[in-house]
């Protein structure tokens, strides 16, 4: 997109630099050596253009190599996913399936709980996303716009947990959820092997609160004040003024949280022990090394899981990239 405009621009500046040198040269020498300088200038320009071309080819070759490395492993999955496991070990290697088979998929759907895992993943990731969006934007509004005693202290406390990794609190969080699970009533909703127990501990990151607060603070303060004087309650201001203007930020945060959650492994691994609440990442990994690893099935499962995300990604690439940048703080 920018290629067309960038190339001539660079040429211009190159020329500019050369001319500059030219002029100082002719200042040093005779005034009538202009013709000579001009020839030298053109020769230099030619040399420069050739070395530019070499450099460009080198650059694109390097970039292409890394593209192959990036995408290659996923593309290669297509091959084992449509072969039986035995052919994997064949020599000479069978790069393209000679007799493509859907056997791996049949196994996946008949003999494993793949669909159940998929549904669980959807519920889990959607749940965490919704809980995060709602709670984070509400809290961010309070921190950004409302005045109450202890506001700064509480915000600092919450923010100080921003960098705490899941892994470091995995064990105590596990015990906490188990303990709550033993309580009457609430234990039916929040426990190991419940959606509540799966979702809530994954929705604790203060990143969204922080992000949304920053965003709300960039909204013109007059809007909030105007709405106040128009008689609107805090809740009405939040819903009618702030939330609509927050939409782009919410989309970015939502995509980020969803991406992180559906890819997560550690918490769902310990929070769900059976197939009923197992998610895709845990489920597919459980195929690895259970009895004898069926490599073809694993390949098929991985491929099947990645394809839909890739399609969604290609449609919403701009948002994804933005989301991952916004999330740089956490990742």
């Amino acid at each position: 997109m920018t290629a067309g405009s960038a190339a001539p621009e660079r040429d211009l500046t190159t020329d500019g630099a050369a001319t500059e040198r030219d002029m100082t040269a002719s200042d040093d020498g005779q005034a009538d050596s202009f013709e000579l300088d001009r020839a030298a200038f053109e020769a230099a320009g030619r040399r420069r253009r050739t070395s530019d071309r070499v450099r460009r080819i080198g650059a694109y070759a390097t970039l292409s190599l890394f593209v192959v490395i990036s995408v290659g492993p996923a593309l290669y999955l297509i091959s084992p996913a449509f072969r039986d496991s035995v052919s994997l070990f064949a020599y000479p290697p069978e790069w393209i399936p000679r007799r493509p088979t859907l056997e791996n998929y049949r196994f996946l759907f008949r003999n494993t709980e793949y669909i159940r895992w998929g549904v669980n993943t959807a519920v889990y990731a959607t749940g965490v996303t919704l809980v995060s969006l709602v709670t984070n934007s509400l809290a961010a509004y309070a921190f950004a716009r409302l005045r109450f005693p202890g506001r700064k202290v509480l915000f600092f406390l919450i923010l100080s947990t921003l960098m705490i990794p899941v892994a470091a609190v995995l064990a105590p969080t596990y015990l906490t959820v188990r303990t709550i699970g033993g309580w009457p009533l609430i234990g039916d909703w929040i426990d190991l092997d419940t959606y509540g127990g799966l979702i809530l501990p994954s929705a604790v990151s203060p990143l969204g609160v922080f992000m949304m607060k920053q965003f709300i603070e960039t909204l013109p303060g007059g809007l909030y004040e105007a709405a106040k004087l128009d008689g609107a309650s805090e809740w009405r201001i939040f819903r009618k003024i702030v939330l609509p203007l927050l939409k782009p930020a919410l989309v970015v945060l939502g995509i980020f949280v969803f991406m992180i959650t559906w890819a997560s492994y550690l918490w769902p691994l310990v929070a769900a022990t059976g197939d009923d609440y197992r998610v895709l990442t845990v489920g597919i990994q459980s195929l690895n090394g259970q009895f004898v690893t069926n490599w073809g099935v694993m390949g098929a499962a991985a491929l099947l899981t990645i394809v839909p995300v890739t399609i969604v990604f290609l449609f919403f690439q701009k948002w994804f990239v933005q989301a991952s940048m916004a999330g740089a703080l956490k990742q």
Binding site: P220, G222, L223, E225, A226, A227, K228, L229, D230, G231, A232, S233, I241
Partner: peptide, 16 residues
């Protein structure tokens, strides 16, 4: 402020 029944015109208008 919501109960004072005053209206304000802001310098930058503060239109929604």
């Amino acid at each position: 402020p919501t109960e004072r029944n005053v209206a304000m015109v802001f310098q930058n208008y503060a239109l929604y």
